[in-house]
Simulated assay, not measured.
Amino acid sequence: MTADLFAADRRHVALDPGALLLGGFALDEAPRILAAIACIAARAPLRHLETPGGRRMSVAMTNCGEAGWVSDRSGYRYAAHDPLSGLPWGAMSPLFRDLAVRAALAAGFPGFAPDACLINRYEPGARLTLHQDKDEAFHTAPVVSVSLGVSATFLWGGQARGDKVRRHVLHHGDVVVWGGPARLTFHGIAPLPVDAHPLTGPLRYNLTFRQAR
């Protein structure tokens, strides 16, 4: 049973000091966000990146903003240009930036200035193993993560890979923000179940905003 099911109010579910689940925070913007994702993907198609170890990621990814997160045999890093086209990533829209800034503020992190938005597309069975978001130049700014489409199980661990993992279901429109003492918490997504959502069909989309540079 997931911890957030017992919360009387899912609008603010504390995961840890510095980490907050904002239930339904992005619901009003969801249709416009999904339309914007389609435009972003037309310029920089969603693709399955390769890990430094040569494994194909099950999650398809693209980016917008001044920097985009990429991975290949050379390692994990941020790049100003899409390696597929050589073009700069598309600009981050005011819609995206405003949502990320408001979510960070609601979680107690004023002054968030995201310059990178990683967009993930999950198909049934896709997953994201436990990891830390640590490729950014500084870790003083929070991470803002927006969930759209099919519900997924969010894996929330600790500061070491072997720490106990808690599970929280993320629904369409939920936003998770973590920073401060929780900034380098290990986290991931369990394999996406076979399900359907009226706006995305069998898919889940995740937007992760960061200050990369």
Rank of each mutant, 00 (worst) to 15 (best):
A60L: 04
D174Q: 03
H197V: 05
A67F: 15
G68S: 04
D163M: 08
L203H: 14
I37H: 10
A41E: 12
V146M: 03
N206M: 06
D16F: 00
L5M: 13
R204C: 09
G54M: 10
L192K: 01
E29I: 14
I189K: 00
A8S: 15
N120S: 15
L21C: 05
R47Y: 13
R127W: 09
D163E: 12
R127E: 13
F6H: 11
P193W: 00
H81W: 10
P52C: 07
P31K: 02
P193I: 00
A80V: 12
Y205W: 04
Q132L: 09
G173F: 04
P193T: 05
V146Y: 00
L184A: 08
A196T: 14
L22F: 09
Y122I: 12
F112E: 01
M61Y: 01
R167D: 09
L105D: 12
L34H: 05
G157V: 08
Q159F: 09
Y78G: 01
P17M: 04
L184D: 07
G188P: 03
Y205K: 01
A41Q: 08
R43T: 08
A3M: 09
V101T: 14
R161F: 12
R73W: 07
H48T: 08
E123T: 11
A103I: 11
D195H: 14
D174G: 07
G158C: 08
D72N: 11
T185R: 13
T153H: 01
G24V: 04
A80K: 13
E29A: 15
D133S: 08
R73P: 07
S74E: 12
K134D: 13
G158M: 07
A113T: 14
L207G: 03
L34I: 13
A107R: 00
A30V: 10
L128P: 02
L49W: 15
A80E: 15
A30C: 12
V59I: 13
E136K: 10
D98Q: 15
D133C: 09
D28M: 08
R77G: 11
G86C: 13
A100M: 11
V70H: 06
T208H: 01
A67N: 11
T200Y: 08
A7W: 05
V175P: 06
C117H: 04
A113D: 15
D195T: 02
P193D: 02
I37G: 11
C39H: 12
G108V: 07
V194A: 13
L199N: 01
R102S: 12
W178S: 03
Q211W: 04
F6R: 09
A152F: 02
E29S: 15
H187N: 04
L20D: 00
A160G: 14
G125V: 10
G201V: 08
G75K: 02
L49K: 06
G18N: 05
G108A: 04
V146E: 03
F154A: 00
A36Y: 09
P198V: 11
T2K: 03
Q132Y: 10
L105V: 06
A106V: 05
P110R: 01
A141R: 02
A3E: 12
L5Q: 11
P110K: 02
G180M: 07
A44W: 05
L5H: 10
A14I: 11
A126V: 04
T185G: 06
Y76C: 03
A126Y: 01
G54N: 09
G201E: 11
G65Q: 09
